[in-house]
Amino acid sequence: MSPVIAVRPHRQVWTEQIMGTVVSIHAVTRTGAPERGATEAAAAFAALREVDRVFSTYRADSDISRLRRGECAVASLDPRVAEVAAACTAWEAATAGRFSADWRGWFDPTGFVKGWAVESAARAHLAPLLADDDVVAVGINAGGDLQLFTAPGADWVWRVGIADPTRPGVVLATVDVVDGAVATSGLAERGAHIVDPRSGAPARGVASASVIADGLAAADVWATSAVVAGMDELAWIQDAGTRTGILIGDDGRVRRWIRSTEVSVVGADPDLATIA
């Protein structure tokens, strides 16, 4: 009989600069098992570079730039442009205008494309890795936005740190995710870069909004929309279908929710029969 030895799963990491940020892919495999995932990670990176080639507003030769200059119609561009445009229209309605691809006066779907592209690439290239018995979990982090997978029955939970928006390198909160997406929007690094499309004014009050949902496309849009909505407007969680999330205010105020209910943990005193 061989002794039982507690072992940590083995983790591999690949990183690449894409879309103006750094994308990290992690594959967790059983200890002692052969390493897996290099091919799949490369395929996911390639898919993201390809999306960037079509949608980047920084590249003069991208489909989006050509569309902006009026050189061609949507119908003659990559078919994903029309797909993204339709999705953005639907999200603008779902968020009551807090998210819009037309906030600059021209079609700029950047706020949607990253989450959508990362989710798509992760589902197409990374999730299939779980069919391998040696793979415990696989996940991708694209500039702070995550799509995470865990093999059914695996003894693994992704522990996700939510960055403190005011103190670089410090984690303010943690959330555990088995399968799902985490997106955070805020003013932390790039300054006041989220504009309320309805007024054209910069969003104020929310330093950081993190949303956990099944997919990153939705999580990312709702996180952006939450920043625009502000600290005092949380009614949108009623219909958003998010799992949970956290708002961190400029003033340090925190609001959290589960599904459509706001939750505040006020303490763990076992004798709280009379708190009124």
Partner: peptide, 12 residues
């Protein structure tokens, strides 16, 4: 043991 960090988009 934090596995991943979510935050507002960072530059390269």
């Amino acid at each position: 043991d934090i596995h991943m960090v979510s935050g507002a988009t960072y530059t390269s």
